[in-house]
Design a protein around this nucleic acid. Structure first.
Length: 226
DNA sequence: CACCAGGCAAGTA
DNA sequence: TACTTGCATGGT
């Protein structure tokens, strides 16, 4: 039904895992830190996000109540290393206001909902789009939701697995309609795609003609080039 | 110097 | 629906 995607995707997963090993995502101490990191990492290098999170930790404000009290301007200065600091401070405040206003700031209460309702709520927050919402669902709420990002498009397109410019929902369905809803699998798979993308699948490929000699020689992924 | 990073919202056609 | 633009720091 899926045009043999189930087998292809699992072969891709096995090859990536063999090449890169377990990624141990999400690098955070608790679900709330995951959610903050998910907003801060929007179009931003993770190393810069780490500095911002360190600033929040060292200031002792990495919790809902403290962030709720804090002035947006003050917050923006703490997260400055993550870039887009004015808009991200507002986005974090929007999210905090949502959690406090609707769940009394109780994350357990927030997470005690069906996945589709959780996603709907997250997407209602200005500053949380589909990728950020799905990252929170997968890595904070630990739901079997597949996270799609720019690397997912790039890698699958360059390997001839999808048309260019398919929608987020279509790409997500490609994975979720062809794989068992396995939270641990989705966790590792997305993290591996990011790692592989960083390593071999830049926006402007240095090698001539991806789908890549790189993948084939270094990863044994000629199975994807048809 | 140019390019990129674990996106999103708002505006336009 | 399908583009375009603004947002911004820090590494390579």
């Amino acid at each position: 039904m899926g045009g043999g995607y189930s087998e292809k995707l699992m072969e891709m997963y096995q090859a990536l895992f063999k090449r890169f090993g377990p990624q141990h995502w999400w690098p955070a101490d608790d679900p709330f830190e995951v959610m903050v990191g998910a907003v801060l990492t929007q179009n931003t290098n993770w190393a810069n996000v780490e500095r911002a999170i360190q600033n929040l930790k060292q200031s002792g404000v990495l919790d809902i109540e403290r962030l709720h009290q804090m002035d947006t301007k003050e917050l923006s200065l703490l997260i400055k290393p993550a870039g887009y600091y004015n808009i991200k401070a507002k986005r974090l405040k929007n999210f905090i206001e949502f959690l406090v206003g609707r769940y009394g700031g109780d994350l357990e209460a927030f997470f005690a909902q069906e996945t589709s309702l959780l996603r709907e709520g997250l997407l209602s927050v200005k500053g949380i789009g589909r990728e950020t919402a799905d990252s929170i669902l997968l890595y904070a709420a630990r739901r079997p939701v597949f996270v799609v990002d720019a690397y997912t498009y790039r890698i699958l397109f360059r390997h001839g697995m999808v048309e260019e410019h398919i929608s987020y929902d279509e790409m997500q369905a490609l994975f979720m309609d062809n794989l068992e809803p396995d939270e641990a699998l989705f966790n590792e798979f997305h993290a591996l795609i990011v790692q592989a993308g960083k390593t071999y699948c830049r926006p402007k490929p240095k090698c001539e003609g991806c789908p890549l000699e790189h993948w084939e020689s270094e990863m044994g992924l000629n199975i994807y080039t048809e």
